[in-house]
Amino acid sequence: VPQRAWTVEQLRSEQLPKKDIIKFLQEHGSDSFLAEHKLLGNIKNVAKTANKDHLVTAYNHLFETKRFK
């Protein structure tokens, strides 16, 4: 089981690129989880459509539901 890579403050910070969060989610989330949160596909394309709040919610949801690969 992966550990949380970032704190809530870090997740919301401008310093953390959306692409980093997407990469983490794609590496650790199950396909059904990723599909549900519309996070499947090319990281660049996902970054265009997903806002930061959406990614933070998905990140927290992944750990709450433990839907890891």
Results as ranks from 00 to 15, higher is better:
60 N>Q: 12
42 N>G: 10
16 L>K: 04
11 L>E: 01
21 I>H: 01
35 A>Q: 10
29 G>H: 01
32 S>D: 12
26 Q>V: 06
69 K>V: 06
2 P>G: 03
16 L>I: 14
49 T>Q: 13
10 Q>S: 04
69 K>G: 07
30 S>Y: 02
16 L>V: 15
40 L>S: 10
61 H>K: 10
54 H>F: 09
61 H>G: 10
32 S>I: 08
18 K>Y: 05
34 L>F: 01
59 Y>T: 02
55 L>C: 05
29 G>R: 00
67 R>G: 08
47 A>W: 06
11 L>W: 02
16 L>H: 05
36 E>Q: 12
66 K>I: 04
13 S>W: 03
54 H>L: 10
50 A>V: 15
59 Y>A: 02
39 L>G: 00
7 T>C: 08
8 V>Q: 14
57 T>D: 15
41 G>V: 03
45 N>T: 14
22 I>V: 12
65 T>V: 05
39 L>D: 01
11 L>M: 09
64 E>W: 07
66 K>R: 10
54 H>K: 13
30 S>R: 06
35 A>E: 11
52 K>C: 08
39 L>H: 00
20 D>Y: 09
30 S>G: 06
17 P>G: 09
20 D>E: 13
37 H>Q: 08
34 L>N: 04
37 H>E: 05
53 D>H: 08
2 P>W: 03
14 E>N: 15
20 D>L: 11
35 A>R: 09
9 E>N: 04
46 V>I: 12
59 Y>S: 01
44 K>V: 15
25 L>D: 01
6 W>S: 03
64 E>K: 07
8 V>P: 13
24 F>E: 04
42 N>A: 13
55 L>G: 00
67 R>F: 05
62 L>A: 01
64 E>R: 07
11 L>T: 02
35 A>P: 01
12 R>Q: 14
58 A>C: 08
1 V>R: 07
58 A>Q: 02
22 I>S: 00
47 A>F: 08
20 D>P: 05
34 L>D: 00
69 K>E: 05
57 T>M: 13
29 G>L: 02
53 D>Y: 07
44 K>T: 14
12 R>A: 13
23 K>W: 07
50 A>S: 11
27 E>P: 00
68 F>C: 03
61 H>T: 14
27 E>R: 08
7 T>F: 03
36 E>A: 07
25 L>H: 00
22 I>P: 00
15 Q>R: 09
46 V>S: 04
41 G>M: 04
35 A>G: 09
34 L>V: 04
27 E>S: 08
66 K>Y: 07
56 V>T: 07
7 T>Q: 05
13 S>Q: 06
24 F>N: 01
13 S>R: 03
65 T>P: 02
6 W>V: 03
53 D>Q: 07
38 K>G: 12
10 Q>I: 04
58 A>D: 01
62 L>G: 01
47 A>V: 14
35 A>Y: 14
1 V>T: 12
54 H>W: 11
66 K>V: 05
52 K>P: 03
